[in-house]
Design a protein around this nucleic acid. Structure first.
Lengths: 331, 331
DNA sequence: CTTATAAATAACAACGTTGTTTAATTATAA
DNA sequence: TTATAATTAAACAACGTTGTTATTTATAAG
């Protein structure tokens, strides 16, 4: 049996309501008694029962994050950032790796104040599951009722292509996976094509390189194939993700192509790790802290007043210059 | 204001205690009334208040997992497995990426029934933090009071070396990171040396290859260095982790060395992903499900009766044959 | 010295459940 | 019928807090 405010009340010779006030640092109790009560509480190793507290105050000051695909590293940086952001608001974050609906059920048991969902695939979820619960999704729109924080992938590609064009590049390749399951990858691909059209760039058989996967070696193999053809090489390459870009760099280096002297490279995913690659990579996409901040801000807005939040919120990408791009050699 | 059993009682024309019993499927209420109450509850979208329930029943049927280093993929498979194992016991799992002591504080607020800690570095934690809380650690001993599930890395290396020796190999290399911070890596290294001595194998400058890091490219570079020397190549290589082994395979393939015809490879980390590498890799270490099961079993033992659990529990490794080892060519 | 006023504490009613006790109803046997 | 047992439902006391209201005690004003 753990110790309660009643036990402390007894020991201090006051009523338990006084103990409650003292421990909550209420001005309604005399400094003397307050000090004494706090002392006794500490001595006795008192730990508040949060179930009881939550029964009367409705909030838990905790936000739940649903993250069923822990195996995907890409998001882990974002998760960490979101946690930090949440803590700035004086809240805690808790994680579940269950599917969205199971996770939400569990979070409700813990009287979580709001939920953030990272889910790769669109879920059919009964509206009753998230009724009266501030909830937001990132990555995939779960449902048209649930506010959704999105990234403008097309604009990111436009940004990247424009940057390269401004440096004088014309032969640009896109190395990415555009398997039909992942909407985000497709948007990157389409964004690239859009930009290509906009800048009137020449499409060749090597403009688009399909990796067929999202791992580093998928990018590696694809790039290997690209650079081993006899035709003229591109002067710049855009990789569709952090991992793929790592593979690209590896393959280029093996061919003794020097970045950015011989070839320029841009990678999608604006994360700090980009700087740690063999060549620090110029990257596109919203900086990870911007995404984190946006998500967290939206959640808190949602908790304040449900109606003020737009259903879709789009984050705009930025370009972060590092050391992997140079002016195109005049060919 | 959400709906409570009292509201349902009113609607059903019974007392709230009857509603409670009906919803808990107690035999003390007539099937008729029970059905009616359940129907009304469903109609009204009743959701139990778990804070209230927990106030009277002390258990939450949830286990917390502290996992401060989400960025490390290696463990994510294990985390997923542990979750499944916990669910087999009818419990839920919840995650925190905070440091151990912060996470435990939060878990206590949620009346978590037990805690599992994955922590890379030894923590100094006040005993009061985990007093009266079933807690267990994996990976690193947190504290001599907290039961600790360990892996016998030395034995794993012995197993691997023995297996290769039995296949006739004599020139075996160990590719791994033994930076002084990670105790586990060091034990693998020492285990390898121990085995080498036991089987009287010849130590050469290439017996031990230090990667200086745990990423795939660390293994890749190290192996590259190894195979590009002029001296006689080893006939077998042991990689100290999944990622490093992936790098080893890549480097060997690039040198047109065929696995296992030209060279045999064993990787530490007995995870299913080993089968998906370019060459399915024979691996050593406790199978991930065995580790998960051991951890979860220990936690439940701990919840039952605290004293029955030994402070250190060692899991023994196994060798999983796949396609990466062959009989040594007679040189 | 009252008496009004402020400060400090005590008392008590929530919060939404569960589990135990008590009461009311119904069925069964004498 | 009536006493008795079995079934069903109601009543009530927890669980450990917080917040509101009531009471006591100290302080100041007249």
């Amino acid at each position: 049996m753990s110790i309660t405010i009643k036990d402390i009340a007894e020991l201090a010779g006051v009523s338990y309501s006084t103990v409650s006030k003292a421990l909550n640092n209420s001005p309604l109790v005399k400094p003397n008694t307050k000090a004494k009560i706090i002392r006794i509480a500490k001595e006795q190793g008192y730990e508040p029962n949060f179930a009881a507290r939550r029964l009367v105050q409705k909030q838990s000051h905790t936000i739940g994050l649903v993250w069923p695909t822990v195996e995907r590293v890409a998001l882990s940086t974002l998760v960490t950032k979101i946690k930090e952001e949440i803590e700035k608001h004086g809240y805690s974050m808790i994680l579940s790796i269950n599917s969205a609906s199971t996770a939400i059920e569990m979070f409700k048991r813990f009287q979580i104040d709001a939920v953030i969902v990272f889910e790769e695939t669109k879920q059919k979820m009964d509206a009753s599951v998230f009724a009266n619960l501030p909830i937001i999704s990132y990555g995939t729109a779960l449902n048209n009722e649930i506010p959704f924080v999105d990234v403008n992938y097309r604009q990111a590609m436009l940004l990247g292509v424009k940057y390269l064009v401004d440096l004088g590049h014309k032969r640009i390749s896109f190395v990415g996976d555009f398997s039909p399951v992942d909407q985000r990858q497709i948007e990157k691909y389409e964004g690239f094509l859009e930009a290509f059209e906009k800048y009137n760039l020449p499409v060749t058989p090597h403009t688009i390189v399909n990796t067929g996967g999202l791992d580093w070696y998928d990018g590696y193999h694809a790039t290997k194939r690209l650079v081993e053809t006899d035709s003229t090489l591109p002067t710049a390459v855009i990789g569709s993700s952090y991992d793929i870009s790592a593979g690209i760099i590896r393959a280029l280096r093996e061919k003794d192509l020097i970045i950015p002297k011989d070839i320029s490279v841009i990678g999608y995913d604006n994360i700090p790790q980009m700087a740690n690659l063999e060549t620090p990579l110029t990257s596109i996409g919203p900086p990870i802290d911007v995404i984190a901040k946006e998500i967290v801000t939206t959640v808190f807005m949602l908790m304040d007043e449900k109606d003020s939040v737009p259903t879709i919120q789009t984050i705009h990408p930025e370009l972060k210059e590092r050391a992997s791009c140079a002016i195109a050699k005049s060919t």
